[in-house]
Design a protein around this nucleic acid. Structure first.
Lengths: 185, 185
DNA sequence: CATTACATGTAAGACGTTACATGATTAT
DNA sequence: ATAATCATGTAACGTCTTACATGTAATG
C-alpha cells in the first residue's frame, strides 16, 4: 500500500496532476517505485475521497484542463504515521535470476543475448542517474548549502547508483559464467 | 506471471509438494522470488489443470499424505518458451527509499531506528547467503567438478551476496546522512 | 502527415495478501 | 501443556497490469 505514500511524498515535494505524477513515476520517484497512469488516477480518486488530498481544477489554454492535487492535513498525518511504523525489508523478485537457474534445463548459451540486453539497460540507467546527480547535486548549478530534502533525495539517488553499479558487475559475472559453460569446460 | 516459471524451475530441480515448495520459497528460490503457500497451492492446481504438471499421491506414515508434483512435458516446453522470450529489466519498489524522501516532511532522525533495523536484517541475510555458499559451493563438502546447474545456482547466489553487501554499504551512507542532518549540520 | 506530449479515464482479469480453517505428530 | 513442523486448503479483499477509449495541440 505504499503507492499512496509515494504519491503523498511526491505531492509534498510539488503539487501536480495525475498526468504529472505519472511522468514523475517514470523518472525521479519512479527510480524506486513504479506506477502507471491507470493506477495513479484510481488511487488519486480514492485518496481525494478519503480526504487525504485537495483538488483544484486548473483551466489551461491550448491544453486540456487539469486537476491539480495537493496534500491535505489528513494526508500529512497519514504519511507521518506511516513513517513511524516499521516496515519489513522488502522481498525481491528477479525474473532474470529465475531464468538463469532455469537455463540449467535448457540452453545456457541462449541466455547470453538476454543478459547482454539487461546489461545495456542498466548501463543506460546508471548514466541517467549520474547525469541527474551532476545536474542536481554535484554540478556547478547545484545549490551550495543543500537543505535536508536535497540531502535525502541525494542519498536515495546514491542508492540507485550503487544498485546499478552492483548489478552491472554481477551481470558481467553472469556473462563470464555463461561463456565458461558454453566453452564446454 | 513468473511465479509459474519459478515453480517450474524449482520442480525441475526437485519434484515436491506444495508444502515443500512453500519452504523453498522461504529459502533457496525465495531469495529472488517470494510466494506464500496460499498462492502456491492455487497456482499448482491451475498448472495441473493446464497439464503443465503431473501429480502423484504419496501416502506417508506419521505424517499427512502429500501430493508430489513434477514437471510434465508441456511444462518443460512452457519454461523453454519463456526462457527464449525477452523480459524487461524489472522495476524496483523500495519502501525505504520512499520513507527516506518522505522524512524531509517529518523528522529525519526518527528514521534512524528503522534504518538500523533494516541494516540488521540485511546483515543476517548476508551471513545466511555466505553460509549457504560455503556449504554448497566453496566448502570442503562441495562437489569438486560442479555441473552447469550448480554453476548457475552459484552465480545467482553471488548476485544475492553482492546485493546484500551493496545494500549494507548504502544503509551506512543513509545512517551517516541522517546523523549529519540530526547534528544540525 | 505522423508522432509525441498533454490530459483523463473505464473494464477485465491476473496476481498477491491476510485471515480463517483443520488436523496429526514431534519436540520442549 | 505449548509450540513448531508437516500438510492442504477456502474466502475476501486489495493491488497491479493490460487493453480499450477519447480528444487537442505542438513538433518535425
Amino acid at each position: 500500500m505504499a503507492l499512496e505514500h509515494a504519491i503523498l511524498v511526491s505531492l509534498l515535494e510539488k503539487p501536480g496532476s495525475g498526468y504529472e505524477l505519472a511522468r514523475r513515476f517514470e523518472r525521479s520517484i519512479g527510480y524506486f517505485w513504479t506506477a502507471t497512469h491507470q493506477q495513479i488516477y484510481r488511487v488519486l480518486k480514492r485518496m481525494e475521497a478519503d480526504g487525504l488530498l485537495d483538488v483544484r481544477e486548473v483551466p489551461q489554454q491550448g491544453r486540456p484542463d487539469k486537476k491539480e492535487y495537493s496534500v491535505a492535513t489528513p494526508g500529512r498525518t497519514a504519511l507521518s504515521q506511516w513513517l513511524h511504523e516499521p516496515i519489513e525489508p522488502e522481498s525481491v523478485r528477479h525474473d532474470l535470476a529465475v531464468k538463469i537457474r532455469g537455463a540449467a534445463f535448457d540452453d545456457p548459451a541462449a541466455l547470453i543475448r538476454e543478459v547482454e540486453r539487461h546489461h545495456r539497460a542498466h548501463s543506460g540507467r546508471l548514466a541517467h542517474y549520474l547525469a541527474g546527480e551532476q545536474r542536481d547535486f554535484t554540478g556547478p548549478e547545484a545549490p551550495a548549502p543543500p537543505d535536508a530534502g536535497q540531502e535525502l533525495q541525494h542519498v536515495v539517488l546514491r542508492g540507485g547508483i550503487a544498485y546499478e553499479r552492483m548489478t552491472l558487475a554481477w551481470l558481467d559475472d553472469v556473462l563470464a559464467t555463461l561463456h565458461r559453460l558454453h566453452a564446454g569446460h
